[in-house]
């Protein structure tokens, strides 16, 4: 998995997003075990404490679960993953519409352009 960071936003927040993407893309399939904090931190070249914070956040969101014996796994709760997908998709759409608005294109025109692109 390729990790990419910008310096001006908290790293842990970026880690959360990138792992979320990883889950959605299928790099971390539902139910699969997640590598240890150290391994992930090394891979991403970030501080283990920061990675720990990110993973804790993902647990709070219900996307990761910690088991006493098996360590951390991705949730098998398809609904949760579906919710995540929707949420991220919504954000993409919002961003797209804002981008179009910045170009001076109305929402209706934007939708028409999409329809044309899809066909």
């Amino acid at each position: 998995m390729k990790w990419d960071f910008r310096g001006d936003r908290p790293i842990y927040a970026q880690l959360v997003e990138q792992i979320q993407l990883g889950i959605l893309r299928g790099e971390y399939p539902p139910g699969s075990s997640v590598p240890s904090v150290r391994t992930l931190a090394l891979e991403a070249e970030v501080n283990p404490n920061t990675m720990q914070k990110a993973l804790a956040e993902l647990e709070t969101q219900g996307l990761l679960a910690t088991h006493r014996t098996a360590g951390r796994t991705v949730t098998e709760d398809e609904r949760r993953i579906g919710e995540l997908k929707e949420k991220m998709a919504q954000e993409q759409i919002k961003a797209f519409l804002e981008g179009m608005a910045a170009l001076g294109i109305s929402r209706e025109d934007a939708v028409k352009m999409i329809a044309k692109e899809v066909n």
Partner: peptide
């Protein structure tokens, strides 16, 4: 560091 980034919006 994360606090600094949040506060200032900079690296």
């Amino acid at each position: 560091t994360d606090e600094l980034r949040e506060q200032t919006g900079k690296s």
